[in-house]
């Protein structure tokens, strides 16, 4: 009987020891994996925001490039409609997507994304006569 108890104790100790070791080995692995997943997600999210900004600014609506339309929006009292730009964002982000284009002085269009968001910024040139050579615009998407 005493021998049986001894064996059971040894077995229990071995099991606890094994579980503890396995746990110690797996925990960092799981944490590392979560960290990597988040990192990749953030990086691709930022790249997507940049790509979207690039493709939108490179597009043309009629005779004007979207970049020119945005610049004119800042430069003139009667700014061109930026609906074309918005349509491009909607197409990419789908129904559940959220977007907002802004500059340092305010929002051009879109809503503030409340949950996880990715942003990209770039400078666009402005007509010289506006007194400012460039303006930084920021696109936030989700």
């Amino acid at each position: 009987m005493k021998g049986m108890a001894y064996i059971l104790t040894i077995l229990m100790t071995a099991v606890i020891f094994t579980v503890a070791i396995v746990g110690m080995l797996l925990l960092p692995l799981i944490l590392f994996r979560i960290h990597i997943t988040q990192n990749v997600e953030i990086q691709t999210g930022y790249s997507n925001a940049e790509l979207l900004l690039l493709t939108s600014l490179s597009s043309r609506a009629g005779d004007s490039s979207v970049q020119e339309m945005v610049a004119n929006h800042f430069a003139f009292n009667n700014p061109p409609d930026l609906g074309f730009f918005e349509e491009k964002l909607k197409l990419f982000l789908g129904d559940g997507g959220c977007y907002q284009l802004s500059d340092e002085s305010g929002v051009l269009f879109g809503d503030l994304c409340t949950s996880k968001k990715y942003e990209a910024t770039t400078k666009i040139p402005l007509p010289y006569s506006t007194g400012k050579l460039s303006k930084e615009i920021k696109l936030v998407i989700n």
């Binding site: 990086q43 691709t44 930022y46 790249s47 940049e50 790509l51 900004l53 690039l54 600014l57 490179s58 490039s65 970049q67 020119e68 610049a71 990209a120 770039t122 400078k123 666009i124 040139p125 402005l126 007509p127 010289y128 006569s129 050579l133 460039s134």
Partner: peptide, 27 residues
Amino acid sequence: TNIIQGINKFELNHRYLEQALKYSFYQ
């Protein structure tokens, strides 16, 4: 990611320069 972001920035600079050249000429 580094390459994609680099290309994005480079291309955005290109777009900037093209438009800036137009505005420079206008002025």
